[in-house]
Design a protein around this nucleic acid. Structure first.
Lengths: 225, 225
DNA sequence: AGCTTAACGGCACTCAGTGCCGCTGTACAC
DNA sequence: GTGTACAGCGGCACTGAGTGCCGTTAAGCT
């Protein structure tokens, strides 16, 4: 009855695409809360049970490639030359995710709209973004291992990069997700390097805190006065 | 039958505490997934329907004062003097949240443990943290309005402050949440000011970071002295 | 005492998500 | 070509979260 049966490679991918398309279509026309998983499955021409073989939950129907993005970022970090500057590395990793969203602009724009209007999807998206932040932070923590306050610098850098990435990405999506304007928003993301914490100072006497360094500067001033 | 009926102030607060205590107790002994809302309600001596009058979902049973934290942060920003340096302001706002968790260390430690072990609660916590990040970013965006790249600086600063806060808070909780060590971890959080993006450079060569700028100011004084 | 009001508990319902099982088309062996 | 192992599918039944509704009951007021 079903011509896709058994074609394990193309068949599965096709069913998956049908389900995503059905979910997007129904969420837009009928609303997220008003759409049941039964509706999505019926719209895609499969059984309800099959839906849950492709997506772990209803919320995941419009975010099919989250694991792919995480894997790509991990790959960028894993294959990076140890001497590559951190700023260049995090930029490359961030743009990898940017490109992933650019692969299917229409779906990304629709998901952006839904994640802004539906609280349940907004929270889900927050959790997803946090997965990226944790991945960045984890990778950077290894790079900064041994540095004074290396863990803090990893946390701040990871959070900053992900925040800047999302700011630029969402601006692009709000702008319609047009391919010809992609580079403008990628450039906007790259500006984050100007706001990243720098390497810990090495050649000076180790004075890291604001208070300590300020006190030292004032002490110098007092000596000169 | 129920002696708490109708005492709208104390009665409600008491029921609420009972429900939180029951949830924490059951989640620890039986596990989160294995505990139903019926179990929690029965343990607290109320009906299942009553549980949902106090908490919108099962996940919220252990995080009773999220809105309180958001409101306090908003209050810090709202009542701040316009001339107060951004670094000092975000530190004050962050420590306000720190204090909120310190109000009930035992509950905070238990919630920390659960949010690490249960994926559903971990994602929920991510969403909650993101609410703080958005609040910080929104407030800072107003402060930086007009600055070149003010929106990016707001996003980066907000994300950095929240990340540093969580790093320090979770370290304190992992350490047992002892009151006598609270100040150590608050100091750890304060180090974030050294990693925040500075004011946009106007006439000088690029000097980012609070510390560098203060040192430069003192250096100018030294030259004049 | 009579009345109003607010919280409570129970009931019934929808829907997400899961385990189980029987079915069927495909691929492979012979 | 026939038999067989296998993988994906659909249906069924079940649990549990979350919601709307309503009758009940205790507190507060007059």
């Amino acid at each position: 009855m079903n011509s896709r049966r058994g074609r394990s490679a193309e068949g599965r991918a096709e069913v998956r695409r049908d389900l995503v398309a059905a979910a997007v279509r129904l969420f837009r026309t009928r609303g997220y809360e008003e759409t049941t998983v039964d509706d999505i499955a019926a719209e895609a021409g499969v059984g309800r049970r099959t839906f849950f073989r492709y997506f772990p939950s209803k919320e995941d129907a419009i975010s099919p490639d989250h694991e792919v993005g995480l894997a790509r970022v991990a790959e960028v970090f894993a294959s990076a030359h140890p001497a590559e500057p951190t700023a260049a590395l995090v930029l490359r990793a961030g743009e990898t995710v940017f490109d992933l969203y650019a692969d299917d602009p229409a779906l990304s724009v629709e998901r952006f709209r839904l994640t802004h209007e539906v609280p349940a999807l907004r929270d889900r998206e927050s959790a997803r973004v946090d997965h990226y932040r944790r991945l960045f932070t984890r990778q950077l923590r290894e790079r900064f291992a041994g540095d004074p306050d290396g863990e803090l610098r990893a946390a701040v850098t990871g959070a900053a990069v992900v925040a800047a990435h999302n700011l630029a990405l969402r601006a692009w999506l709000a702008d319609g997700g047009r391919a010809d304007r992609l580079d403008d928003y990628r450039a906007r993301f790259r500006k984050v390097v100007d706001m990243l914490p720098g390497e810990p100072a090495r050649d000076e006497p180790a004075l890291h805190g604001v208070t300590e360094r300020l006190e030292a500067a004032v002490a110098r001033l007092e000596r000169h006065a």
